[in-house]
Design a protein around this nucleic acid. Structure first.
Lengths: 104, 104
DNA sequence: CTTATAATTCGATAACTATCGAATTATTCC
DNA sequence: GGAATAATTCGATAGTTATCGAATTATAAG
């Protein structure tokens, strides 16, 4: 991945609260995925009510959390689609891999 | 690694030019290391004249480059020791590993 | 259509960042 | 000690970011 894009990903993860948010989403996704595998469904479709969940976990205003979600999306780390009143949110594994293997 | 420290590392890598700088240092270190292994010396002692080298590679003022070095050091990614008029610079592998495996 | 809930956008503010050139400090060599 | 080179610090500036509360928009349910 070229520097510009990678730097953008790092920037998205450079705020402590936003990093926590991303971890929250990531962990939740992993959980869903293992459940899905157990049920023989294959992969995780994404987590529901991600925004609501995040609001419950992070001590920040809703507008700030909304902002952080946007940043993570903008960097390419997650994809969110609205489903009725709430979010369906997925982690983009390729991007996470890019971070992991950005060196070596 | 806890969020606070990890976020700091990401912040250090979130600037495109600084990311380039880090890669430069990192690649150079890897090169030295493979040479050292060939010579039977074990590991890389660090790269000499890192600052000077960086000045030649990045199109930025010396003061800005100095600032970027400081940021990388401050985040824990590299260690620089002055050697006479120049730098001896090393990558802290543990930190790079932490970044790589920050998830999964 | 009204009410309730969820999420976004807006406007403001305070704090932080990248960058530069100039001045300064540290080191080496003559 | 003086000159040359290397790196740091200083002060300024323009741009970005995190955060909030209030106002707004979107959706669902009665």
């Amino acid at each position: 991945m070229e520097s510009k894009r990678l730097a953008k990903v790092f920037k998205a993860l450079s705020n402590e609260r936003r990093l926590e948010l991303f971890r929250l989403i990531y962990d939740q996704c992993k959980l869903e995925e293992s459940r899905a595998t157990q049920d023989g469904k294959g992969c995780c479709e994404g987590i529901e009510k991600a925004f609501t969940m995040a609001c419950g976990c992070l001590n920040l205003s809703r507008s700030t959390i909304s902002h952080h979600f946007k940043e993570l999306q903008n960097a390419g780390l997650i994809t969110c689609t609205r489903q009725g009143q709430t979010y369906m949110c997925q982690v983009n594994e390729d991007y996470v891999d890019a971070v992991r293997s950005f060196l070596g």
